[in-house]
């Protein structure tokens, strides 16, 4: 059964960006937060809870539907995969994702679809994100099963 990346305990996020750095390092050999397939958003002031935007693994993804060239297609188990050759750099996919969970690679001018590989979860010090079986996934963030810290 394939796995999906899930935000398990958002309130435990300290905003260290370790997950974003791990994603960029692993998939692009890039030492930056800007190539990550997920994003930790923070707010002005003493932050409050951070907002974590990671691919929800939609079964009917709006981003793929918005793609005019068919570069994004459904990934088995949820989410999307990108055919870079077909991408015309329009950015419509990113705009179609309501929670801004699909990230944009400014340098390559292409989306960065999450591969649900789980590498980021290994570098989260506080078990904020984790991998769950894809049948635990839903087509919406509100219906995600709560997971235990040790999962």
């Amino acid at each position: 059964m394939s796995k999906l990346l899930r935000v398990l305990q958002r309130e435990q996020c300290i905003g260290c960006l370790s997950c974003m750095l791990a994603c960029s390092r692993s998939w692009f050999a890039a030492l930056t937060v800007e190539k990550a397939a997920l994003r930790i958003r923070n707010y002005a002031g003493v932050e409050g809870a951070f907002s974590i935007r990671a691919c929800y693994g939609c079964l009917e993804p709006d981003c793929a539907r918005a793609c005019p060239t068919g570069a994004l297609s459904n990934r088995s188990g949820g989410g999307v995969i990108l055919d870079v050759k077909k991408c015309d750099n329009c950015g419509d996919c990113v705009k179609a994702c309501v929670p801004k969970a699909l990230q944009w690679d400014v340098e390559a001018r292409q989306p960065i679809p999450c591969r649900h590989c789980g590498i980021c979860t290994g570098f989260c010090p506080n078990a904020v994100i984790g991998m769950t079986d894809s049948d635990a996934g839903t087509n919406g963030p509100d219906m995600i099963k709560p997971a235990r810290k040790d999962q």
Partner: peptide
């Protein structure tokens, strides 16, 4: 103590809010 937050790329998070 409301939460601890961190500097960019610090997994410790010593900022006590």
């Amino acid at each position: 103590l409301n939460q601890q937050i961190a500097c960019a790329h610090c997994q410790v998070g010593c900022i006590h809010v």
